[in-house]
Nucleic acid binder design. Sequence first.
DNA 1: CTGGATCCATGATGATACTG
DNA 2: CAGTATCATCATGGATCCAG
Lengths: 254, 254
Amino acid sequence: MTRNVRTYDHFCVLSRALERIGDRWTLLVIRDLLTGAKRFTDLMDRLGGITPKTLTQRLRELEEEGLIEADREPGRREVWYRLTVAGADLAPAVDALSWWGLRHAWRPPGRDEVLHAEHLLTAISLVIDRTGGDRAPARWHIELEDDGDYVIESDGHHWTLTFGRPQGVPDVTIRTTTGDLKQFVTDPTPSQGSALGIQITGTAKAVARFHRLVGTFAKAVVLQPPGVTGEPSRRPTISSQAEDEGGRVFQRRS
Amino acid sequence: MTRNVRTYDHFCVLSRALERIGDRWTLLVIRDLLTGAKRFTDLMDRLGGITPKTLTQRLRELEEEGLIEADREPGRREVWYRLTVAGADLAPAVDALSWWGLRHAWRPPGRDEVLHAEHLLTAISLVIDRTGGDRAPARWHIELEDDGDYVIESDGHHWTLTFGRPQGVPDVTIRTTTGDLKQFVTDPTPSQGSALGIQITGTAKAVARFHRLVGTFAKAVVLQPPGVTGEPSRRPTISSQAEDEGGRVFQRRS
DNA sequence: CTGGATCCATGATGATACTG
DNA sequence: CAGTATCATCATGGATCCAG
């Protein structure tokens, strides 16, 4: 009798959590739904390499466990998947893991790696939220000609990314493509924006703030693939309070 | 050519993190090392059901990725595994996932589920840290006759659990066994402590605070297995700011 | 006893093609 | 658009054995 690989049978809150969201792909599905409801093919686009079989299986499991809901309207082909409150409550955990990944598992994009605009924007939002002290309200509308609309905004406390058109008037509107956006964030200056033909509109002050804050991301991480700007960097380049000092060991928290 | 199951090949910080700690058992190993260095068999004890083959593999992977270090002193049998700074930096992510598990994936202990004292104490520390406003400094020494020493303490900002004897003088000392501890936390009153023969020493004030804070855990969760005190509860019983209201759906964060 | 290694079985996942 | 179906492969579990 082989033990069920999907459970741990421990009396432990972390084991319980991992039984629900610890399977391969699961947390990536949650991540993509945290920015807003999506269709099956929207998720397939973002989860490059997943097979439809696996995605179906994950969606069914998540639905059964009450983390997502499927919106199947009769007479409509599309099925929209969205998080329940329990699912959306994973946001702090997803953010904590992403933040760790940014600092300790960073590497420049590989040659054959899929880059979806949403995940680049997620990383930008995360860096702006966690490294800058600037949390004053803002709303940036990013229109990607090849991938729809995104909104990066701060409510005065936190920066978040959402998929879809903005609710309310944006301070800054950016119109470009995924490819140009990727180029731009490595050097988010007005001149680079012009060179790439990116349309950025808004008040001079708001646009300057946009450039400055996106600059914190460019400074924080290395986007160029190995060989373009020098040595590949497998070491983290972002510092936090208790940062690596070359393998020194310590004992729980700071 | 089958794709490597251990990578995602996405340019995404969460994917990068999950490639390192997303495998089965990996985050549970991290969790057990977050409370202090452990030996192979210490980990085997806590990771009930893991095979030595899998544990060896996980330890090698984590060592290679720089998240743990193995302390192999010549002339000594034991190998001590401990977190590097990069590994210990996973603490916020582990805590966030555990906290989600406590609220949304709780269930009473199953009949055949392994309960290790360390994981019960982890959950207690987490609840005290996140639900109470009481973060004044404290140091509780828990001596388990069958499982060594633990310390739950607050530095004035956060409550943490560590494995091993306390550094400094504890405010409260609790001497008992794993089984009695499990019984006690369901009803952490002085009378129940006496009935179980648990030795609790310290000033009256400190001991009263201990009982009160452990009581927040008892009130927060249901420890009894189904049938003992009534209906099984698969629903979470702890409330946080944005709590489930029966499947209502919303859009990213609160 | 600790700290593993080995062999085989099984189930989860991937590749590819196809369908209502 | 939203999946199913079929086959192949790899990770994990069970059981057992072993060296210092």
